Simulated assay, not measured.
Amino acid sequence: MSSMELIIPGALPPLSVAGETAVHLEKTATLLRRLFEYATPHIHPADPDQTGCTPYEAWLVQRYHFAPMPDQAPCAALAPILVPVAQNTEPVWLFQLAHFGLSNSGAHMLTASDIAVTEQESVALYESAADIFTDTPFTLTGHTRQGWTVAVPDGFSLPSRSPTLIASADLAHVWPQEDAFKPLRRLLSELQIAWHHHPVNEARRDRKMPLINGGWLFGGAAAAQLTAPSTAMPIVIPDLEAAHRQRQWGHWLALLPAVEQTLTRELATALKTHSGGNPVTMPVSLILTGDDRWVTLTLEPTPALLKWLPGQRKQWKQWWSQ
């Protein structure tokens, strides 16, 4: 029997605002509320301090059945997942462009997605970075849409954390300070200096956009440590992720109608495709991620699925507010 999977990163607010957002969701997100009421929840803890990545990324790593080496966190697998490589026994390291800045709460980072880095900007900066990398223990090996692949020295180890996770933290608490990371810190400093007046950033200044003044290195796992999923990737509805990470709860609530529209469209399309004029019997899984967990909501096959599952209601606020 075919099934449908959807995932909404950043859909679970933290306990501090769970009650308030639940009240708003009940009033303005009718479809989500009804799906929550009729689904069976399965809660999966995903502590970022242990995984080195966001719960959405931890869920993604689990899909690939990552077999870690000793002391390898799940985050290490993100690089070979994002950039599959032919030489699958070599560790994959990714360097993703970013913006580093200061705010009232300390030093912070914005991801390439946050600052809308284009392919053309990335290529131009890649070309200018090649010479800088030449004088370091690191080697640029390739340019991809997900980031630049980097070869690291033998024995190099880095507490791997994903850029998305770092972008929600105070850098003072996560920046590697040990002597072993001096070459990496020096490299990042040289890139920041070299790129300050790069044409890419001059154009960004003109457009009042954040400068691309550095990047974040992560990874370390090899493709051989992964097993490709046997099922297609779920439909990802990404609207809430950035607002959730940046704690912009008013904006997060304002985005719920757009999520509802996408969810309604995807469900209607899938049910129409699979029904063929017959009663609908397709199971649906809806995966929601938060700060330190994800919840899988299972909607059992029912001929009434197209009517949004009238049936026994469940107490959804119990798992919503954890």
Rank of each mutant, 00 (worst) to 15 (best):
N201R: 08
N201E: 08
N201H: 07
N201A: 04
N201P: 04
E202V: 14
E202I: 15
E202H: 10
E202W: 07
A203I: 03
A203M: 04
A203D: 08
R204N: 12
R204S: 13
R205D: 15
R205N: 15
R205G: 14
R205P: 14
D206H: 11
D206N: 11
R207M: 12
R207E: 09
R207K: 14
R207F: 05
K208A: 13
K208C: 10
K208D: 12
M209W: 01
M209I: 03
P210N: 07
L211P: 03
L211V: 06
L211H: 07
L211Q: 08
I212S: 01
I212F: 02
I212V: 11
N213R: 05
N213Q: 05
N213W: 02
N213E: 07
N213L: 03
N213D: 06
N213V: 02
N213F: 01
G214Y: 15
G214K: 01
G214C: 04
G214D: 04
G215M: 01
G215C: 05
G215N: 04
G215R: 02
G215K: 00
W216L: 01
W216V: 00
L217Q: 03
L217K: 03
F218L: 15
F218Q: 11
F218R: 13
F218N: 10
G219K: 06
G220V: 00
A221L: 05
A221Q: 05
A222T: 09
A222F: 04
A222L: 02
A223E: 09
A223S: 14
A224H: 08
A224C: 13
A224G: 09
A224R: 08
A224W: 09
Q225Y: 01
Q225N: 06
Q225W: 02
Q225F: 00
L226D: 05
L226P: 04
T227K: 15
T227G: 09
T227N: 08
T227A: 11
T227R: 14
T227S: 15
T227L: 09
T227H: 12
T227C: 12
A228R: 14
A228K: 13
A228C: 01
A228W: 12
P229L: 07
S230Q: 10
S230H: 07
S230K: 11
T231N: 09
T231I: 07
T231R: 15
T231Y: 14
T231E: 09
T231F: 14
T231L: 10
A232V: 00
A232H: 02
M233C: 12
M233D: 13
M233A: 14
P234C: 10
P234G: 11
P234M: 06
I235N: 02
I235A: 07
I235Q: 09
I235R: 05
V236T: 10
V236I: 12
V236Q: 03
V236R: 04
V236F: 02
P238F: 01
P238V: 11
P238Q: 04
D239N: 11
D239S: 10
L240F: 12
L240E: 05
L240Q: 07
L240C: 04
E241F: 03
E241I: 02
